[in-house]
Structure formats: C-alpha cells, structure tokens
C-alpha cells in the first residue's frame, strides 16, 4: 500500500490562512457542482429540443405512412424506416445474443485465467473499435463488388453488440451463487445440465436487461447503416438478405444534412421516435438491473 500523502510536504501552501483556504474550498466545490449541473443541463436541453421539435411531427400518419418519393416534400412518414430498423436490429440480435452468452459461459464456467485473458482482451478491443471501422470492414467483406443489404448492416451491428452482451451476461453469471452450482453437482447433475438448467435461468433477467441495452445501442448506430444499408427505395420491405432496408438512423442523418425545412422536420420526428425508444429501453433496463442485483446478491 503506497502512501499518497508525502508527510514532508504540507497540504497547504506556506502562509495560507484559514479564510483563504476556506474560500478556495468553497470555490472548488461550487465549480464541481456547476459541472454536474452543466452535464444534466446538456442532457435536458438535447432531449427537450428533440421532444419539442419532434412532437409537432408525431402523428399516426407519421408512424404508419412511407416517406414521399419527392425530394424535400412535406408529408409522408417513417413507417418503412421503423420496419427496416426493427428487422436489421432483430437479425443482429439473433446473431449476437447466442455468441455473447456462450462467450460469457465460457469465461465464467469453463475457462482458466490463462485462456480467459486473450478472449477478454479481444472483447475489450472489439468494444473499443469505432463503429465506422467495423462498418468499413463489413463493407469490404460483404458489400464491395455486390450490393448493400440489410443483412450486412445486421452483421456489423452484431459485431458491435457481442462485447456488450458478453460483458453484461458475464456480470450476471458471476452473481449466481456458487452454492447453487455446488448443490447441483452434489445431486449428481453434470456440468451442462447445471449451466443450462440452473445457472442460466437464474441469470435470465439480467441477460434480458443486457439485451435491451445492447438493442438500444444498436438501434441508434448510424455508421454501419450509412455504409451498408443506405441506398433504398421509399417502400416498406422486410427483405433483409436481398436489399438495403430503410432505417431510422440513416433517415435522421440524410435529412439533417438536407437544406429543405420539410426534411429537417422529418429528421426531428424520427429523432424523437429513436430517442424515446432508447431512453425507455435504458430506463427499464436500469430499473430491472438494480432489482436483479438486489435479488441475486441477497
């Protein structure tokens, strides 16, 4: 244990009097408080502007109609983008969830420290990799020389989701009491039945919350869909493997760069739909996670 305080060095500068020290103390505490206020203010300002600009767009028609084919025209909705985003994220989750959970099972139930280290490192590196780099990789792998597909975007999103899912699942599996596993073994039940029948069901709530968080993250990822699923028609389609699918992040991106006010309006509406989905997902996940931790650490 190192001692961070050097006894030879006084905590205060020589000659500092109490009143000045108190004033500095108060000032620094005020600055720290102000910093926290600034962060919360930014969050509130962004959410309120999205909500107030998007609310005027929001209607049944906006959610159920496809966009108009004409450039910059008012009217139309984002139905095709909602369906497309749902498809892309669903396929991504279907790929990433089993892999993420299996990695977590390997790391918590099977691995020795020496084999776990490279896999942890790979997950950390994957987690720190920018989504644009992953998107360029998938572009070179699946799109270059072929054509954009919704699946290509799903593939990129799956790469982004795996480390998130593996990490939350791992955290949840670690919370399952060792006694449960020991009891199961003592009853003569072998490893895989213990894991599939006892450990996973106990952690199911936590895995679900982790999935919700990963889905919320993937739904807003723009770089992958920009490179892999951005050249599409106006109609609703669910053909993930055949064509590029319209989607919400790209809709916001292209409409935000447009110079037509009608496009800006649609961008705000789509942004409100996306941010509402993400915030609801995050808040429920947080509440569930807190509950799960309480139950399991009892």
């Amino acid at each position: 244990m190192s001692v961070p305080l050097d006894p030879a060095r006084p905590l205060t500068a020589a000659g500092g009097n109490l009143r000045r020290r108190r004033r500095v103390d108060q000032m620094m505490r005020a600055i720290a408080t102000a910093a926290a206020v600034v962060a919360v203010a930014i969050l509130v300002i962004v959410i309120v502007t999205v909500a107030s600009n998007g609310a005027s767009q929001l209607s049944i028609g906006f959610l159920t109609k496809d966009p108009t084919a004409e450039l910059g025209a008012a009217g139309g909705g984002i139905a095709s983008a909602i369906v497309g985003s749902a498809m892309i994220v669903a396929v991504a989750t279907a790929m990433a969830l089993p892999i993420g959970v299996l990695i977590a099972i390997y790391l918590t139930e099977f691995s020795k420290p020496r084999t776990a280290r490279p896999i942890r490192l790979a997950l950390d590196l994957l987690n720190g990799m920018p989504s644009i780099v992953i998107a360029v990789f998938v572009y070179g792998l699946l799109v270059e020389g072929h054509q954009q597909t919704g699946f290509a975007a799903s593939f990129a999103l799956a790469i982004i989701m795996v480390p998130l899912l593996a990490r939350t699942t791992q955290e949840m599996l670690r919370l399952v009491p060792q006694e449960l596993r020991d009891a199961s073994h003592a009853l003569g039940i072998n490893r895989w039945r213990t894991i599939v029948g006892i450990v996973l069901p106990s952690a199911l709530g936590g895995i679900l919350t982790g999935t919700v968080l990963a889905v919320a993250r993937a739904a807003g990822e723009t770089a992958p869909v920009l490179l892999l699923s951005s050249i599409f028609g106006v109609g609703t389609t669910i053909n993930v493997f055949g064509t590029a699918l319209p989607n919400i992040p790209y809709t916001i991106f292209s409409d935000s760069e447009s110079s037509f006010p009608a496009d800006h309006a649609r961008a705000w509406g789509a942004a409100l739909v996306l941010i509402a989905f993400i915030l609801v997902g995050n808040l429920t996940a947080r509440a569930m996670l807190a509950r799960q931790r309480r139950i399991m650490s009892r």
């Binding site: 892999i99 990695i103 099972i105 099977f110 896999i119 790979a122 990789f137 070179g140 895989w192």
Partner: peptide, 28 residues
C-alpha cells in the same frame, strides 16, 4: 455429449471474437 457440445460451442464463440479482430485487421 452435452458437456462436450456446450464446451465446444462456448470455445467456438470465444474464438469467434478473436478471429473477428484478426479478420478486421486483415481485411482492412
């Protein structure tokens, strides 16, 4: 069989993560 299968799948999934990193570097 179940033990082998689960361990095999778990190792396969873990290797996927490592392979994807290598593949990204190679492909770029």
């Amino acid at each position: 069989l179940g033990d082998r299968l689960l361990l095999g799948l778990a190792i396969l999934a873990s290797l996927t993560a490592v392979v994807v990193i290598a593949l990204i570097i190679y492909k770029l």
